[in-house]
Nucleic acid binder design. Sequence first.
DNA 1: AAGAGGCCCTGATAGC
DNA 2: TGCTATCAGGGCCTCT
Length: 287
Amino acid sequence: MPELPEVEIVRQSLNKKINQKKVIKVIVRNRNLRFKLPINFETFLKGRKIIEVKRFSKYLIFCFSNDKYCLLHLGMSGTVHVITDNQRNLLTNTSFYNSPTLPIKHNHVEIIFKNLRVIYNDPRRFGFFQIINDSLSLKKKFANLGPEPFQTEFNYKYIISFLKGKNKNIKNFLLDQNFVSGIGNIYANEILFHCKLDPNKKADSLKKDDYKKIILNSRKVLSKAIKNGGSTIKDFKNTSGKRGRFQKNFKVYERKGQLCKRLNCKGIIQKKEISNRSTFFCNICQI
DNA sequence: AAGAGGCCCTGATAGC
DNA sequence: TGCTATCAGGGCCTCT
């Protein structure tokens, strides 16, 4: 569920809390994430200083001095928690189990800094860490990913040339990270609603105006989601345990059977499987 | 080569 | 109450 906006929220709060801090210790409780945590993970991080926390697409990038990097992808259920030593002492002394911020189970990785620690929690273990040894490898890692919606490279010309000769529906393309990166199932649904487009429509049959709407609305929806602290469906929280608010703005996602929110539209939101992903759309205005 | 489908995993929920 | 089935979905992999 963490898509670009949620990852950005995590990045922002992490960058405030751990920038310029040095890793003192790393605790790994479970190496079996989506990809097995490398054997040298702990020694690679230990002693290194964070100089910035960046993001590309749905990847967090911990940047260290000397051109070293560590990627973190949150998969579907990954959350990052930052907790100070003081908060931690209070928790253990009083009601650890009633803590609103820190989960008890599935805290697989802890990265410990002076006075605080970063805890990676992930029930489904679809998330992963990756060590990157120089900026060239970092570039390579992202080479096959498409631009983010915000980038100028995501423009009409690019879309036309990418879609040429391909035969998929538009929703699949929005989910295709090689076409445009950062959009997941929730935001793909929302973006297509704002474009008034049928998710099942073949992408190369769309009009010039539709492509422009897609560019505009993917930027609009994602930036509004970021402004609202991301979306919390079930378990997304920022590093302080605060929930997102953008789910209140959803027009179609998880609204099956409900009335379309567009002014004067009498449509009913439909739910349909498109390539194994639940897809929500209005049966009147999205045609 | 493009596209479809399977797989990894756990927790919540529905149905019996 | 307790069992089983189903669903959620990001990215990588395999098969056609």
